[in-house]
Simulated assay, not measured.
Amino acid sequence: MTRIRILGIDPGLQSTGFGLIEKEGARLYYLASGCIRTDAKAELPTRLGTVFESVREVIAKYAPTEAAIEEVFLNKNPWSTLLLGQARGVAIAAMTTAGLPVAEYGTMQIKQAVVGHGRAAKTQVAHMVIRLLSLAGEPQADAADALACAICHAHASGTLQALDRSGARRRGGRVLVRA
Rank of each mutant, 00 (worst) to 15 (best):
I92V: 15
T81M: 10
P101W: 05
H127P: 00
M128R: 12
K61M: 13
F73D: 01
C149Y: 03
L133R: 06
C152Q: 06
E57C: 06
A67I: 03
R37F: 06
G118T: 08
E70M: 09
F73P: 00
Q86C: 02
V129A: 07
V114T: 09
D39Y: 07
R56A: 13
P101R: 00
K122M: 05
R131N: 12
T38I: 12
A68E: 08
I151W: 10
L44D: 01
A144C: 08
Q109H: 12
A121D: 15
G49L: 13
K76A: 01
E53H: 15
A68H: 04
K111H: 02
A120P: 04
R119N: 10
A148I: 12
A120H: 06
T46F: 13
V129D: 08
N77D: 10
L132N: 10
I110T: 06
E71H: 00
F52N: 11
R119G: 14
I151M: 08
A146H: 03
L135C: 06
K111F: 02
I151L: 13
A91Q: 08
Q112N: 12
H153Y: 03
T50N: 15
K76S: 11
L48N: 13
T107M: 11
V129E: 09
A136L: 06
Q140D: 15
T65I: 01
A141V: 00
A113R: 11
G89L: 12
L147H: 01
A103G: 01
S80A: 06
A144E: 06
A120F: 04
P64H: 04
T96S: 08
E71R: 09
I151T: 05
I69P: 01
A63S: 14
L84T: 13
A126C: 05
A148P: 15
E138A: 14
E53Q: 14
L83P: 00
A87W: 03
A148Q: 13
P78D: 04
G137W: 02
Q124Y: 07
T107P: 14
Y62Q: 02
A67L: 01
R56V: 10
C152S: 02
T96L: 05
G118E: 07
V102R: 03
N77L: 00
K122S: 07
L100C: 03
M128G: 12
R131A: 14
F73M: 02
K76R: 08
Q140P: 00
L100Q: 08
V72G: 04
K61S: 12
E138K: 15
P64K: 07
A93G: 11
V129Q: 06
R37W: 02
V114A: 05
V115M: 14
E43N: 05
E70C: 07
H155Y: 12
T107K: 06
G99T: 12
F52D: 04
A98E: 14
P45Y: 10
V51N: 00
V115Y: 13
F73A: 03
W79D: 14
L84I: 04
A40L: 02
G99W: 11
V125N: 07
A42Q: 13
A154M: 10
F52Y: 15
G49S: 15
A103W: 12
A94D: 13
E70H: 11
A67F: 01
V102S: 06
D142E: 01
A93E: 04
E104A: 14
K111M: 03
